[in-house]
Design a binder for these strands. Sequence first.
DNA 1: TCACAGTTGAGACTAAGTCTCAATACCTTG
DNA 2: CAAGGTATTGAGACTTAGTCTCAACTGTGA
Lengths: 143, 143
Amino acid sequence: MARELLEALDQAGVRLTGPRRELAALIARRQGHFTAADLLADAERRRLGIGRATIFRLLELLADQNLVERVDLPDGRHAYVPCEPSHHHHLVCVSCGAISEVDDCGIDAVTAEAARRSGFEIQSHRLELFGRCPNCKSAESHQ
Amino acid sequence: MARELLEALDQAGVRLTGPRRELAALIARRQGHFTAADLLADAERRRLGIGRATIFRLLELLADQNLVERVDLPDGRHAYVPCEPSHHHHLVCVSCGAISEVDDCGIDAVTAEAARRSGFEIQSHRLELFGRCPNCKSAESHQ
DNA sequence: TCACAGTTGAGACTAAGTCTCAATACCTTG
DNA sequence: CAAGGTATTGAGACTTAGTCTCAACTGTGA
């Protein structure tokens, strides 16, 4: 998956530098969502010597390319989720952080209806779903 | 509208203090969304001598009572929207900041479907719609 | 009117993110 | 494969958002 990120960056015409390769690997080995602070901590733990600005810059780059999506956690923190460029909504497990992608499954109809009723011209929307994933659900009921 | 906020706070069993009355008035006279920094600036402009902590505390209180909803703007900033306690989604005009409330109009079906497909137990969701309100739309087309 | 518990402002503090700048390292061209 | 221009880098200062503590104050119920 790190490879895919790097290929996509290459496509985008930016340089494939050392720090970017290392960060792509760190992102790839994380599953679920992560914050900029998480990545920063990963990088420090491995003494990669990567500056904080570099991390924010890469995240912005990845978000521009739709390689990660920025989500806002219920507690107000910002997190990132690696994703298929075509998908844009996620289910976030609040107990383990696992992510599941959500197809459109009707959201477009909702926005169209909202536009019709309100007279707004809708340019973008953001849908985030929070809950417990199947694993955490069954873990809890078995304990 | 300031009165409504204050009544609701009273119901909630908290004290109706001077700072809270003044902030309720500031919130009431703003239309659309506002950030904590906006309120802070309003308060300073009027030399109300209200501390920053007090503002954050009140916003938290109002959010707990569902008197304002916290929304995340596309640029990542946090904003607040005064709202009916029963409604929980908003249309935000990106050019003038106007807010329109959105009924459920189908979102529950979307979350139910997502839950069914993914196996997640969905606890909460967040839907934000961004676009241009009717006024801004027509203002732009006439210029 | 009193007293106490809830609330306040100041300001220190932390965390998140941005900016600048000189040094470095891609990668394209020859 | 060498060289040079340019994108990128790390350091660290800086800004902004939000939290915390604590002594002083003030609603409010009795």
